[in-house]
């Protein structure tokens, strides 16, 4: 196995993991605090990508596109929470699932009406579009490296927010004891709106960051959201720490599986059989991992202490 290829794929896996964490953290926050299941979380990922695309073309700069798109995604998140989501908090999970499924259809169609059916490729500035050479003669795309750094910074910020601020204290208190937060005289409605918008923004940022690599396309959120679900199931629903660990784990395993599983299979079977079996198995790898972890720990790796 080629060592530098191995490191490159390791970094690619890390980059996927970071994106998954941005998505999963919002999911796990809304579930942990509001006990709310949001299938439409991936829609903010998509909306973020499209808004960022438009603003990148308008301002001529990807960086400005991202910075201006963030508040707009927050507004979309707040509006969604205000019109639909807050009416659903008292309902059961089945209702959450059905209504947010409807929300996905609404978002997908609205995006199609506004931006048209085709995807949009977001151009990168020259200084981000190249490659960097890392120690050990490892060549890696600059932008992907930036995604990793930006993602780690955001993860650090979230860690600080949750563990060292008053808002974070409320979030932690809310996750473990909903009635207590109410008893403290906190305006629950505002807290919930804020947390929901925060989750939307995090998902939106993930969408913005991926749009130059893939493209902004309709339904882009619907596929990755399931992977984000797998992340929070493995991590333990409601746990930030779990979401982070599981996101990196899934990102790495998925990427490494797709790259190297056929090589591993070739050791034990004919190369023809390996080339047929490896893609199927690697596509199923994270789900198999989920099944194994659940069989041992039904509540995930880091279940929140009090539910």
């Amino acid at each position: 196995m080629d060592f530098s290829l191995f490191v490159v794929q390791l970094l690619n896996g890390l980059q996927l993991g970071i994106l998954l964490f941005l998505l999963a953290s919002g999911l796990t926050l809304t579930f942990g605090i509001m006990d709310f299941v949001n299938l439409a979380h991936g829609s903010f990922y998509m909306v973020g990508a499209f808004i960022c695309a438009t603003l990148t073309f308008a301002t001529g700069s990807f960086i400005w596109g991202v910075l201006l798109a963030i508040p707009l995604v927050a507004v979309v998140g707040l509006a969604t929470e205000w019109i639909v989501i807050r009416n659903l908090y008292p309902r059961d999970h089945l209702d959450h699932v059905l209504a947010t499924f409807g929300l996905i259809l609404v978002f997908d169609t609205l995006v199609q009406i506004v931006w048209g059916p085709a995807g949009i490729v977001v151009p990168l500035p020259a200084w981000l579009d190249g490659q960097v050479t890392l120690p050990g003669d490892i060549v890696f795309p600059t932008f992907r490296l930036m995604i990793i750094c930006a993602g780690l910074l955001i993860a650090g910020g979230l860690y600080y927010l949750v563990n060292h601020t008053r808002l974070g204290m409320l979030i932690r208190a809310g996750a473990s004891n909903r009635t207590m937060v109410g008893a403290l005289g906190i305006d629950i409605k505002t807290l919930f709106s804020g947390v929901f918008a925060l989750g939307a923004v995090l998902a939106g940022i993930a969408g913005m960051l991926i749009s130059p690599i893939t493209e902004a396309s309709i339904g882009m959120g619907n596929e990755i959201i399931i992977t984000a679900f797998v992340v929070i199931i493995i991590g333990g629903i409601g746990s930030m720490k779990g979401a982070f660990a599981a996101a990196l784990l899934i990102g790495l395993i998925d990427t490494m599986g797709r790259s190297f599983l056929d090589d591993i299979f070739k050791i034990v079977m004919s190369s023809e059989a390996a080339e047929t079996a490896a893609p199927a198995i690697s596509a199923m790898l994270i789900y198999i991992l989920m099944a194994v972890i659940l069989a041992v720990r039904p509540q995930g790796l880091f279940p929140p202490k009090v539910r």
Binding site: I226, V230, I237, P279, Y287
Partner: peptide, 25 residues
């Protein structure tokens, strides 16, 4: 073995597993 939200998401994930398996063949 799980309840509620876990069950919803896990059945969803297994469904997606079959989806990707067929896609890759």
């Amino acid at each position: 073995r799980t309840r509620g939200v876990h069950f919803i998401m896990i059945t969803m994930a297994f469904g997606q597993m079959v989806f990707f398996a067929i896609v890759s063949i």
